[in-house]
Write a protein that binds this DNA or RNA. Structure first.
Lengths: 206, 206
DNA sequence: TCATTTTTTGACCGCATGGCCAGAATCTAG
DNA sequence: CTAGATTCTGGCCATGCGGTCAAAAAATGA
């Protein structure tokens, strides 16, 4: 049975599903440990304790494996921090919940966040262009913009450029995580609170 | 004559200096065009119109070439935008001059900014750790912190965590440039003004 | 039990990389 | 003009990569 992105028609066998999960987990562990450029199929296979060919057997190629890693981690992040965000009422509270939610997830699962960061930064398509670059962040930008616009409509926020703020907010969060990776002794949650403060002051009415 | 980082004792010959400059220019052009991971010595040599061995002859290795590229570009950036920053009086004006200065440089020399961005993101040492990562940004962070602290001392700025703000400001500038590269039709200077606005509001007194 | 299918292994392929080097070409002094 | 130093070329090397494959091993089911 050749592996496919979607189990079209045929269901995936037991062992097939288990192996895929195992290999995805090994990929996350390996990428977090040695970085994306050094996470070769051979290294990932060694982490999983299987032969290199097994990965080729269960995944169409490295690209599909990386796609599955991204999907797996992002689903997990969304499932973890979305509930805390949805229970907020105001745009300001949502912003704070977003920033601190990512920080809390980073503390609980540093490997997963590091892995998707590595993939976003380093993964490139066959033509050399980024595979998950700025384009992949577009839905997130639009989501943040919607939040800002609602706040502007009801007067909770002042008038500003939502796109610039969305890009900046996401950049601030990414940089917070990157700085913490390089300086693990710093207080990530304190950084998150301070960062949220900066953003709230930047967009509140005069 | 073997090449060295510093001309120790012996002066560098005429042709040596010319070739080094030519190869550095070719490296900048190549990295900006195809990205750091694809900018092999062979490609850079082809851009320069010389044999691959020439690079090995004039530089100790790829690492030294990349170091020279970074030094060259950073010196140029500093020479270009520092004057405009130094003539400002207040911390707020300095911040605005910093943000818009980088934007103006990006418009004038997109290849150079893109190249150092590529190098900072992708260049790794033999052990896989980043060669110009967060650690390399430390002097810049300290410089920004000094600026903030001065503003806090004389009451121009409120009290906030200077390190978090420094990390965030630099991240916002980097993201501005990255977004512009992906969306070249957007108004970079307008983004810079808006970004400076966000930052000024984030740190001004209540 | 035993034939069939699924899964795994380990060797192998083509390719690109950074670096090396013998010899040719070029430049420079005496 | 000529001898020596400098510079350049083009081919070569070892390494690591993603991917493929025949054959072995394991699981499955009649």
């Amino acid at each position: 049975m050749r592996s496919k992105n979607e189990p079209s028609g045929q269901k995936r066998s037991f062992i097939e599903e288990a192996r895929r999960e195992q290999i995805i987990a090994a990929a996350i562990e390996t990428i977090a440990a040695v970085g994306f450029p050094r996470a070769s199929l051979a290294r990932i296979a060694a982490t999983a304790g299987v032969s290199k060919g097994v990965i080729s057997y269960h995944f169409a190629g490295k690209d599909e494996l990386v796609d599955q890693v991204v999907t797996t981690v992002y689903t997990d992040i969304a499932d973890t921090i979305l509930p805390g965000i949805l229970e907020q009422e105001t745009a300001t509270d949502i912003l704070r919940a977003h920033v601190t939610g990512v920080a809390e997830y980073a503390l609980a699962h540093p490997d997963r966040l590091r892995t998707v960061t590595e993939i976003f930064v380093h993964a490139r398509g066959a033509d050399g262009t980024p595979r998950y670059g700025v384009v992949a962040a577009e839905p997130l930008y639009e989501s943040l913009e919607g939040l800002y616009r609602e706040g502007q409509r009801n007067g909770e926020l002042r008038v500003f450029d939502p796109r610039v703020m969305a890009v900046t907010q996401q950049a601030g969060i990414d940089a917070m995580f990157g700085y913490w990776l390089a300086h693990p002794d710093t207080d990530l949650l304190a950084h998150a609170r301070e960062l949220a403060d900066l953003f709230v002051r930047a967009i509140r009415p005069d």
